[in-house]
């Protein structure tokens, strides 16, 4: 990075640190912060939409749809995250490749399952074996987003399902009395009022999601915890220009600060959102706001 970094052994502490913290390896570490933030930014809305769909399905009057919604919530909530991440991701990847294989290579005669091996024709590989590494990484990232969304979508569905039932019946009956049909009642009366009941639960989920990102390394994505462990580990002079002892504590301390700062910012944003949502609502919070203004 800097000109004076050619011979790190001769540098005093400050310059040594400047060189050390700008090695290619550390750049990977800094990039992984962006990876985590992007993952959160993409996953949260996708998971919320999964949750909304799940909750709508679960309260549907059509029995199979309701079974599907309730089954989704029950199964995904019941399976440990780590098992889900190890099993589901490989299964999802194989499902995609299997489907592509059936379409692209109908003439293939060899079995797809050969003992432990999963073999599809090379044109059906996802991504193609010839694709550059960044495409593989993007694909892994997309799979991670889908997996996180399915897991957290199930929790969100449960929260939203409860929130929809928490909206006072009288509100819905009044809507019916005004002549609204079911659809109008749902979108105009139920949905705007349920968020205030859902937000505490969704806020919790968001906090858990922030801290669940280290599961990313199970999917082959190098996240901040992986890099902290890798960079902080003891380095002997034979393998690096910057030998040091076990510095994992310092790296994890940096992660601690990052996570605490991030959750604090999230809390403040959620508080603000809560104030906005309670405004004008027939809840204790909304009533308190009305009195302050009156």
């Amino acid at each position: 990075m800097f000109d004076f970094c050619t011979d790190p052994d001769s540098l005093e502490t400050f310059r040594w640190m400047a060189c050390y913290l700008t090695t290619g390896k550390h750049m990977g570490f800094y990039q992984s912060f962006a990876t985590v933030l992007i993952l959160l930014a993409v996953t949260a809305p996708v998971a919320l939409s999964f949750g909304f769909g799940g909750a709508m399905a679960a309260r549907s009057r059509i029995a199979p749809l309701s079974w599907f919604g309730k089954g989704y919530i029950a199964i995904v909530r019941g399976v440990p995250d780590i098992a889900f991440f190890l099993f589901f991701v490989i299964a999802l990847d194989q499902l995609i490749e299997w489907a592509r294989h059936k379409v692209i290579c109908p003439d293939w005669t060899d079995p797809i399952r050969q003992g432990n091996d999963f073999v599809v024709c090379s044109a059906a590989k996802m991504p193609l074996g010839t694709a550059p590494q960044w495409i593989h990484e993007m694909y892994g990232f997309a799979i991670a987003v889908i997996t996180f969304s399915i897991v957290f979508g199930a929790f969100a569905a449960n929260v939203l399902f409860g929130a929809m039932r928490a909206v006072p019946k009288a509100q819905l009956e009044t809507a019916a009395a005004y002549g609204m049909n079911d659809r109008q009642t749902f979108w105009r009366i139920l949905v705007p009022q349920m968020w205030v009941y859902a937000l505490p639960g969704l806020g919790n989920l968001w906090m858990v999601l922030i801290k669940a990102t280290p599961l990313l390394f199970l999917l082959g994505i190098e996240d901040i915890v992986y890099w902290a462990r890798e960079l902080g580990g003891t380095k002997t002079e034979r393998f690096t220009d910057y030998p040091h002892g076990d510095w994992r504590m310092w790296y994890f301390l940096a992660l601690l600060v990052f996570y605490l700062a991030f959750t604090r910012v999230s809390e403040m944003a959620l508080d603000k959102l809560m104030r906005k949502l309670t405004h004008g609502q027939a809840t204790t919070g909304g009533e308190a706001q009305r009195r302050v203004e009156a």
Binding site: T23, K25, E230, G233, F239, T240, D241
Partner: peptide, 18 residues
């Protein structure tokens, strides 16, 4: 694995080495 020097490890540039 990239964590088992001298067999394989990640060097200062973030590349697999060893």
């Amino acid at each position: 694995e990239g964590a088992y020097p001298p067999y394989n490890f990640i060097d200062d540039n973030g590349e697999v080495a060893g």
